[in-house]
Amino acid sequence: MTTTLTHRYIAASTKNLGAASESDVRAELEGSIADAIDARVEQGIERTDAERAVLTELGDPAILAAGYADRPLHLIGPRHYLTWLRLLGILLATVPPITFIGAALVESLSNDSIGEIIAAGITAGLSAAMHVAFWVTVVFAVLERLGAATRGHWNVDRLPDYPRSNVDRASSIASLSGLTLLAVAVCWDSFIGFARLDAEPIAILNPDLWPWAISGLFTLIAARAVLSVRILTVGPWTTRMAIVNTTLAILFISLIATLLGRGELINPELVLAAIDAGASRDIVRVLALVAGLATVGFASWSIAIGWRGTVNSTNR
């Protein structure tokens, strides 16, 4: 007679296996445990004690479950660990301090005390650090579970060509930092507001851009980030990656240019307030020009590093 302990053990070790193999594993494990219990009972051990002993010997059902599912028992394994560590180190050393300075600058526009300015900076810096650590780790944990396909077989030709691939690496890291800052800045602007209107925070970006245009922007940011992570973990630029990268950059330019052209990028409330306060109407044009130039500059830089990386890696 199997009792609840065995049933609980089997349920714990066969969950998440997928319906097809689950019933098979369950039936087999049931038999194996019953066999082991019987063997102990034959040696004169009380059945309940035998059951406890057998299950104890089998150990933590989570380990058995991982064995059945062929799942790793670690979050990030040796394949990705060093890349994860380096990237996290660089991002943590750059993004939170920049966020701290940015937040403190914004806060200082509002005539708050020095204590409040520093507190705002620390809060923003800490939350940026948490986001960086969390999301970088999530991306690598997913890479780990997507499995062996990401790296392929290593051979001596893949040895980094010292200064050149450092350029690739450095520009990937710079891109990731830039993308993170852009994403953080957009979120900060939407939820807290960069500008001040009568000492009240107000967003620079048009709130009507939520959710569609902003989602589009974040999709582009995420896709570009995937490319950079690929450079860091797998290897050099390929022509196909440079084409994808160029497409992303052009999509980015068209998104921003369309919004600028329709006058939908910048918060109309802010523009009206600026004009009310005596600014000339040209302020809209100047802002649009600055945003447009920044966009084109950012995108061209991204396109350029993609093609330069491709030329470097195919010229070897």
């Binding site: 038999g31 194996s32 066999d35 082991a36 063997a39 089998l58 058995l64 064995g67």
Partner: peptide, 23 residues
């Protein structure tokens, strides 16, 4: 089958844990 194999392995000097053998 599983349990018999576990015992046989132990008898022949290939001691192994059940939670390694079954998967």
């Amino acid at each position: 089958y599983g349990y018999k194999l576990l015992e046989e392995l132990a008898q022949r000097g290939f001691t192994t844990d059940a939670n390694t053998l079954y998967p």
